[in-house]
Design a protein around this nucleic acid. Structure first.
Lengths: 237, 237
DNA sequence: TCAAAAGTGTTGGTTCTACACCCATGG
DNA sequence: CCATGGGTGTAGAACCAACACTTTTGA
């Protein structure tokens, strides 16, 4: 097999920005780095691309190893490449964004790995350019969630309308009228009303809803409008 | 300097999908590959990432070398990584999308390089996974252009409203009502009406317009609606 | 003089936002 | 029995899509 000559071969890392929502705050799943440099500092979950796998495979491998979870919503976000971004050795990093249901994660594993959920507004300092990655991921999430029902990936199987609304209000740091919000959300027909109620946050209790998976998939790419127009953010990057 | 051990170091390529619009058709700028394998086959403009540059720098370097153009609209799209995508040697490829004004390109160079504009619907076979890249780029362009005034990057300094409308109609393969279209476009205040007319495509002639750069930049990230709702495509990827 | 493309307003339907009160219940 | 959060309808404004005729002028 011929080879390209006189070209630079470098390391490719994969870093995962993992979002969760606990009912009132957005969270990021971070780990304490187990090796030098920056040992014990907090970082995104990451690893190196191996010779026989694609980036998607690598991202799934890494996420499974560190959280035990598979088949998550995950997509490639951006490749970071400043020559000095890793002081050890030239490395480019492909950032992936995953959205996961915190409850599922907590059932799956507890502290097998030194992973920890941090509130978005109480993040520790992160190594390398991981803070840049997080910023871009937040901005992309805000952009995308304004147009597509992507935040549903963060929800547990059963959730309430107030829970859903809190998720949008928190992401956009705004208040939304609950009558308008309910009407818009239900008009998509993506939600199925359950018979039971969540009584943990009020005496009256709020009905649970679940996702109608087939309608959800159909409509995933359609452009929605859950957020009032003037709250739509100023796009990605 | 310590190094990470036992990790795979691989080549990183940059490939550029370069869109143009000639007044009636979308075009892609392709080159005939000058080295084996697949010598003389058509391919996207590409090159390898060097040790001292970022991906953005590399993409600009490659584009300048091959077209002579600088300061183009260009953004990173996606990183392709199937292990066997390049039969010579494991290589990941970061695809960039550029939008350029064909007229500017034609002034700048002619055939210094074996580059050629192909109509989107008459593309030759491309090497490796370049056809996948083109498909993704088309789909992303359709998605993004439905929401942001990004197609303006394809226009010459002076253009007419029928020209602009043809650009949208061609991308979405649809007819748009010219009264509604004109009203929407002008209501953004991004266009400046010139005093002269383009008489090449009608006897009456159509007034030239140009971009109000500052308003364009302000509004680049706002969500527009030039395309009727039911023509908006089904999103990226 | 006529063919061919440019330019221009209105109306009806839909969608959006703003807004306030009653309901159910656990304590 | 009352405090707390859940649930629901309407009206006015804004926006959108559909629609047809007049203008200009080179050939």
């Amino acid at each position: 097999m011929n080879k390209y000559s006189n070209q630079t071969r470098i390391l490719t890392a994969i870093d995962c920005i993992i979002f969760g929502f606990d009912g009132s705050d957005y969270k990021l799943l971070l780990i304490q780095r187990g090796f030098a440099p920056e040992k014990e500092k907090w970082s995104l979950m990451g690893g190196f691309l191996q010779s026989d796998e694609s980036l998607d495979q690598a991202a799934n491998r890494i996420l499974k190893k560190l959280t035990g979870l598979e088949d998550l919503y995950m997509e490639q976000m951006h490749t970071f490449s400043k020559p000095d971004r890793d002081p050890v050795e030239r490395t480019i990093a492909v950032a992936y964004v995953a959205l996961i249901d915190i409850q599922k994660y907590e059932q799956q594993i507890s502290d097998k790995f030194q992973a920890h959920w941090f509130s978005m507004n109480e993040l520790p300092h992160l190594i390398f350019d991981h803070e840049d990655m997080v910023e871009m991921a937040k901005s992309r999430l805000r952009y995308k969630a304004a147009l597509h029902p992507i935040l549903f990936e963060l929800l547990p199987k059963k959730f309430t309308l107030p829970h859903l609304q809190a998720m949008y209000e928190s992401l956009y740091e705004t208040k939304i009228d609950k009558r308008n919000f309910t009407r818009k959300v239900l008009s998509t027909n993506m939600l199925i009303k359950e018979k039971d109620k969540d009584k943990t946050s009020s005496k009256k209790g709020a009905f649970y809803y679940s996702i109608d998976e087939s309608k959800y998939k159909d409509q995933f790419q359609t452009v929605l409008n859950f957020i009032p127009r003037n709250e739509i953010p100023t796009a990605n990057e």
